[in-house]
Design a binder for these strands. Structure first.
Length: 422
DNA sequence: TCTGGGGTCCTAGGACCC
DNA sequence: TCTGGGGTCCTAGGACCC
């Protein structure tokens, strides 16, 4: 074997972030809710044991939460994002080649470390992150990313592995695949799992043994790669560079239903600002924008409405005044009075590098002036916070604001939220 | 009453061209 | 009467991920 990957993922990441700063939560059931305190999106092991499910609506589990005194938190992405960056920094000690796969997972290229004691190395990674940051992680090591995912998963289930499992031995891999359901393989979702069931493919081992043509036919080329990875053939490379996004989306549900066009527009304007900020951060400009607004999907029949409108720009842009103007115009076109809106947002599409924008002779915008304005705003917001400078169109009442009833302090990024010791 | 948000990739099929 | 064949581009929809 020539390749070797480690997948390091943080256990119950959002819950663990809360616990780092409030050790009293150790050993107790804890959950973190999605934006707007809508669904359960992270659970401590104790909360899992109570039967709280991932993605379950919070109101459905109110009783359970009260009865067992489950500690509840609103999402605190400022805290989680910062903790995530610290974990990545710590992990980069262990390999020069690292892919940040998600907020709580990284792949490490262990390239030619076959000669080292991998088990000891995996344990050392785990111990270091725990010691430096108080963050519990699990480590899976294997010759492909897909197998590393499986190793990681099993490391949490096996008492013997204690959160660090190496899968390089052929017989160990076979055993691991036989103990893993096909639907738990990375890249096999609910739909494919059900389809595979119909063909008698139940375990990861069954999936490993299907023919290439079967995989290609029923799971597309993506699934074929997965099957090959299960056999130990690396097909999915490490992505070292932060990928430039091809689309950028910003949307939020409202804390309460909104009926007024003006107010929906205020929320949308705020989303445009956030989205355009992300756009400029990766030095892109957008050639098009889709604006949408909708009621709750769960509203009664006749009260459900959802629509979108796409606008194409003559010249790709990153200018907020321009984007806001187009967004509000599109919103006016799709807004229908009489509905109780729950959500609005936008996608920026057809992104191109800012450096390669072709100027149009029909252009009526003073791009240089807008550019200087955007730079100034970015600097101000960076320094004084995101809402330090606002457009009049964003309004001041913010009745649409998220519900966040149980937000913890931003311990690591706000001076006023620093933890106090006596 | 209350149900998250942000992405990627692939394929099939239609439009269009010569 | 007999109504081609091959290629590209675009989009909507479906699948997946965290």
């Amino acid at each position: 074997m020539t390749s070797l990957f480690a997948l390091v993922d943080c256990n119950n990441f959002f819950v663990s972030c809360e616990r780092v700063f409030d050790p009293g939560l150790e050993g107790r059931p804890v959950v973190v809710l999605s934006n707007n305190d809508g669904c359960v999106i992270a659970r401590s092991n104790e909360a899992k044991a109570l039967g709280l499910k991932m993605g379950q609506p919070a109101f459905e589990v109110q009783d359970l939460i009260q009865r067992h005194q489950v500690q509840v938190f609103s999402s605190n992405y400022e805290l989680y994002g910062d903790m995530s960056a610290r974990v990545v920094e710590t992990l980069s000690q262990f390999s020069p080649n690292l892919e940040v796969y998600s907020i709580d997972e990284s792949f490490l290229d262990l390239g030619n470390l076959y000669k080292t004691d991998l088990q000891a190395y995996a344990k050392e990674i785990k111990a270091t992150v725990k010691q430096w940051l108080g963050m519990p992680v699990a480590v899976g090591v294997a010759p492909t990313k897909t197998l590393a995912k499986i190793a990681n998963r099993l490391s949490k289930k096996s008492a013997k592995a204690e959160g660090a499992l190496v899968l390089t031995d052929k017989r160990h891999i076979e055993e691991a695949l036989k103990r893993t359901e096909a639907g738990d393989v990375w890249g096999i979702g609910r739909r494919y799992a059900r389809k595979l069931q119909g063909f008698g493919v139940h375990t990861a081992w069954d999936l490993r043994n299907v023919s290439d043509s079967f995989a290609r036919k029923h799971l597309t080329v993506v699934g074929l790669r997965t099957v090959r990875e299960l056999r130990g053939e690396p097909c999915i490379d490490l992505e070292l560079m932060l990928q430039v996004k091809k689309n950028i989306c910003t949307s939020r549900s409202f804390g309460q239903a909104i009926t007024d066009l003006e107010e929906v527009g205020e929320a949308l304007t705020t989303h445009v600002v956030r989205c355009a900020t992300k756009l400029r951060k990766q030095k892109s400009r957008a050639g098009a924008m889709t604006v949408f607004c909708m009621t709750s999907r769960f509203a009664a029949e006749g009260e459900v409405y959802s629509n979108c409108r796409t606008v194409y720009f003559d010249t790709p842009t990153d200018s907020e005044p321009e984007l806001i103007r187009h967004a509000l115009k599109a919103l006016r076109e799709i807004y229908r009075p009489g509905f109780r809106y729950r959500k609005t947002g936008l996608l920026l599409l057809d992104l191109v590098p800012a450096s390669s924008v072709q100027l149009s002779i029909l252009d009526t915008v003073d791009r240089e002036k807008h550019g200087r304005l955007m730079e100034t705003l970015d600097n101000l917001r960076e320094r004084f916070g995101h809402s330090s400078v606002k457009y009049a169109a964003q309004g001041t009442e913010e009745r649409w604001k998220l519900r966040q009833e149980s937000l913890s302090p931003r311990y690591t990024t706000r001076l006023e939220d620093l933890i106090r010791a006596r």
